[in-house]
Each structure stands twice: as structure tokens, then as C-alpha cells.
Design a protein around this nucleic acid. Sequence first.
DNA 1: CCTCACTACCCAAACGATTGGGTAGTGAAC
DNA 2: GTTCACTACCCAATCGTTTGGGTAGTGAGG
Lengths: 345, 345
Amino acid sequence: MTDIRPGSVTLKDLAAELGLHPSTVSRILHGKTDTARGAAAPATARRVRELAKKVGYSPDPHATSLRTRRTHLLGVIVPRLSDLVLAVMYEGIDEAADDANYSTFVMNSRDDTLIQRRKMEIMLSRRVDGLIIGDAHLDGNILDELTERQVPFVLMNRAIAGFASATCDDTLGGALVAQHLWDQGHRDVAIIAGEPYASTAVDRTHGFVSRFRTLGGTIPESAIVWSRFDTTGGHTAADSILRDTDRRPSAIFAVNDFAAIGAMGAANSHGLHVGRDLAIVGFNDTSLAAQLPIALSSVRSPMLDIGRVAVKLLLGVLNGDAVESVRLAPVLCVRDSSDFRCATG
Amino acid sequence: MTDIRPGSVTLKDLAAELGLHPSTVSRILHGKTDTARGAAAPATARRVRELAKKVGYSPDPHATSLRTRRTHLLGVIVPRLSDLVLAVMYEGIDEAADDANYSTFVMNSRDDTLIQRRKMEIMLSRRVDGLIIGDAHLDGNILDELTERQVPFVLMNRAIAGFASATCDDTLGGALVAQHLWDQGHRDVAIIAGEPYASTAVDRTHGFVSRFRTLGGTIPESAIVWSRFDTTGGHTAADSILRDTDRRPSAIFAVNDFAAIGAMGAANSHGLHVGRDLAIVGFNDTSLAAQLPIALSSVRSPMLDIGRVAVKLLLGVLNGDAVESVRLAPVLCVRDSSDFRCATG
DNA sequence: CCTCACTACCCAAACGATTGGGTAGTGAAC
DNA sequence: GTTCACTACCCAATCGTTTGGGTAGTGAGG
């Protein structure tokens, strides 16, 4: 487009070149249509715009921010971007932010309260206009603090009562799985429940348990195993579930695809054939699920949209609107890993 | 820490409060040790620092950047963050940048030349100090342009001759796989080679082919199938490889774990048992490989370190040092998917 | 001819920090 | 009692924009 390094030409340069005052140029280039109209004759405006384009003028964002107190910068905090789920949500954010002419910082908190705080401070010290928080813990005390400090923010992925959030309807998702497994004849089920501080984990588990019980089933507390969200977490949890050979469940619901994959690994090493001896259902329907050697049933959550909606909500907040939380509906995708009738059911 | 919104207190406020001049406060807080010494009496310095901490002073980055022409901002461009490999590298970047007091923008280009350019312009218009490019295409013409515009940048993940980069030694990685499969008795092999514009794909393929031939094997061109890097890409490629039942290879090397997983799925649907009828080896050793129902052999690449090194290189460039490309050594991890002797070998 | 309302601009003060160049005041050396 | 070298500061310009408030000049209306 241009062969000049951005920042090499300023408003003042443009003005000098054209024999105008910087303020006039500013109004023409950045003012709203009516301001621009009042600021200059149409012919002048055209000259300015043409020169600006020709020399590749791009306004200095720091000077602008310094003056306007707005940065067009959004901060995003996630547990870890190497969690595919969050990565996809971030893609949604990236897209939506881009469309709205915002840029985003994203940082990993590793779900560590100290790091969460630190990253938040970094973002605020960078003067982001608002925050999208993807790693909220159910205790939520950081959030109260943010509210008190009047920092505009919204939650994503994990919901906390009282704060605006963009999430999947996790309770419904859990319920869909319960219904499915029940319909297939499973009566002994276990849950790899994820981290107890994450609403995703808690809601999916709760949705599942509550539907399963409504249907007449029973789920002992011992059948609910909390775990990390990754493959090793799932493996360990499944291992502890399957170790007791007397009372093995015929189906396992893992609240996360990666945990489900870990569980598949564990099932394997216990000599169980997933999709025949044991049903496994995951959550999120990441791109892997359908491609696994034994295709994994999973609840599809609209991750991309969640990211997009999060941006929309935050922009709403920045705009002073009263925003409402959005819960997007999930869809169950049944595949080989659970597509069979339970023999004992 | 503080209950005040960052930005509410300025250098001038501090100065006024203490009866000093802003410049004095600036030198004390931000000057190098010797500047600070000359600027004020030790007692004054202490008073300033104490007050700054007490009121939670944090300098306005925009004012600073405006004056100093440096932003302490790094731009990172990757094909997609939902590619686990890039996500992990970005975690390395995030860490290293954080340690060096830099913040990073990261954007997805989806390997689309137009988007690459656009995102680059956005980053430059944000006045990043430098760029880490994780999606370089072998034709490399954007890079020449950046060089001409004197934008400081380094490459990551993918290397291009003539530019500083932080990568895995992909050629070696490919060779390790060739050696392994050869040792296991495989003589008919195929390669799911990835995207031809990516050095990772080309080098891994080349490293493999060249070692295999050195060992005395033959690889027809038809056994090299270029493909997308994701699971569907791998599935499609493997499908085309396995479709010809007469001349099926006994082993497949996929230059990427996700492609390998896709290939496993394809093998499955062709009635082949991976780890017995067909060996599959992937690349990168992502966290999934070891946990799959059939554990996937893979070449471990130091993704986190690659990200860290990329930052180090870029900071070197910014510092005016002459930096050299770094290629980190990979390690082969043999698992069930290839841990058997080839029957026909 | 004076007033009035436009049009098409200009002026200057911010925003918050940095930095090259002062300058009072003090104590010591000559 | 000058001169000199410090110490411990202060001053003011500057970075690139934005924005509230002008002001010449023009044409019309009275």
C-alpha cells in the first residue's frame, strides 16, 4: 500500500503540505460527517483525504488515546490459549473486535488467582477500554473488585451470577447428555466433572445429574469425580472410576472433550472397548472429536459465537447500555463412542 | 493493591503533592539508577517512591510512547491460535514477553495473504516495536517489504532463508522418523506432507525423504500427499493414500499431529488397525498424542521454547544486535501407533 | 450602510510523560 | 572572598491529536 513506515507522517505534516491548520485536517479525517462538513469545503476535504491516502497517513494511536482517553483496546484473559476451547473463542473475539475496529490483548492466567490479578493489572496499566474475562472463578471476588474500580468488563465461557456473560447453556448441555445416555439404556453412569471453581464444569455436571435423577436414575456422589480439564486430568479421573471393577459404570460423561479423550485412553488400558463396553460423551465438540479413531460423542457449543457475543456485550457496556447475559444453545452430536444400547440397561 | 482506577493519578499529581517538579519525579521513578541518583536526594527519592506506591501510580503508556517513540508492544501473527502448536508457542511468547516487560498483540491470519497484510498493517498502525511472524509463506514477499520498511521482525515456527527465525530443526525431525520406520522394517511409506508454502511441512518432508533414500529406500512422488494441517486435511490425505488397496504403504508419516489423528480416523474406516496393520507417526507431540486411544508416536518439538526464543531474538533485533536463527532439536517419541515390526519388511 | 447568518477556516490549550539544559545554594580550596 | 565543583532540584519544549472557541470574508436582507 505504502512504502513508508507508519508514524513517519503526522497530521501537522499533512496540514503544512496543504497550507491548512492541523485541526482542520483532523476534523476532516476523523470527525463525524457533520463535523467534517462544517470544517471545510468539499473540495478541501477531498484534497486532504487524497493526500492522506497517498502518503499513507495513519494517526498515532498514542497521541489519540492520550487526548481522548480511549484506546480502542480490549483485554482478554483466559486460563490458557492452548486449551482449544478458549483458542476458538478467542478467534471469535479477534474477528468481532476487528470488525469493530478494536484490537485485543490476550493473556493466559493458568487459572491461578495470583496470575489473574497480575495480568489484569498489566491490562489496566495498558489502559484497555474493557476486559473480557474467560477464567472467572465461582468465588468471584476479583470481579467485585473490578466493579468497585469501575472497570468495564464482561465474562465469557464461565458465568457468575450478577455479571454479564456470554456462555453456552451448560446446564442444558449436561441435560442433553443425561437424556441420551438414559435413552440408550445406561443406568450406572459416572461424571468427570472438571474443576469445581468453573461454572462450566459445575453447570454441566448439575444439568446432567438433575436430568438423570428426574428420569428416575440415581447418581451417587462417588460417581462424580472432579478433575483437571486436560487429557491427563481425564485419564486420572477415568482411571479412578474404572479401577473398582465391581461397580463400573456403563457410561461416562466428561464435561470437556480433552478429559473425554484422556478417559478413552484410560478405558483402553483397562481393556474396555469404548463404544461397546463403555460409552463416553464429551463436551464442546472440538474439531478432534469427530476424527478420533473412535469418534467421540460430544455436545457442540458455539465457541466462535461465544467469543463474538462477548465482544458485542463488552462494546455495549462501553457504550453505557444495560446488557444482558447471553446463553447460547448447545447441540448433542452422537457418534460411535456412545451410539449403542447398553447391554445391562 | 489499590482501589483506584489506573490513570487517575499522574506524575504531576505526585509532584504537586510532594512540592516537587514533575521532571524530578519522573527521573526518580523511571530513570536509570545513575540518573535517579543525580536527580534527587535519597530521602526525597524514598518519599516519592512511597507515595507512588501508596496511591497506585502507574504511568500512562500512551504519554510515554508518544514521547519516547517506543511502545513495549510486540505484534504476533499466527495462522490460527486454534492450532494447538501455535497456541503453545504463543504461551512461550506470552511468558517471555511478560518477563521482559513487553505486552503482545496476537492475531490470526488464517494463512491468507490478504489477511496477513491487513493484520500487519493493524499492528504497525498500533505502533508495535516489532513483529513475530508465525505464518511466513515460503515465497516470502511480504517479508522483503517489511525489511524495506525497516520494521523489526523475526520469524517463528516457519523459517525462510535470509531472515532470523526460531524454529524446530524440522529436517532432523523428519529424518528421525524415517530412521525409526526404516528400523521397524517399513519399506513402503507415505507422507502426509502439509501445506507446501510452509517450511515446516517442506523441511519435515524433505528430511524424511532424504534420510529414507539414504538408507536405501524409495519413495515415489505419488507417496507424498500435500494437505491441510488439521484433522480433516489428514483424513482426506490418508484416505487418498489408502484407497488404492493394491499398493498400500505399511507406514504413514504425517508432518503434524492433527493430520496424523485424521489419518488414524481414515485408517479406521478402511478397516486398518493402527499400530498393527499400519504405522502412523505425527509431529510436534502435542499433549493429545500420548493420550489417544492408540497412543500416537510423534516428534516432540520444543514449542514453548520456540516462542520464548522468538521473543529473545526480537528483543535482540530491537536492541540492534546481529541475531542468528535458532533451530531447536526435536526428539522422537515412539508409542503404540508405530511400535511394531513391519510384517512384510 | 449595518446587521446577520453563514462558510471555511485558524488558534491554542490541553492530554501525561521525557529530557536537554538551566540555576540557586552550599562547602571547600586557593 | 572569589572561583569551583557539587548537590538537588526546576523550566520549558516536545511528542501527535483533539476540541472549544474564535474570526475573517461573503452574500443577503432590511
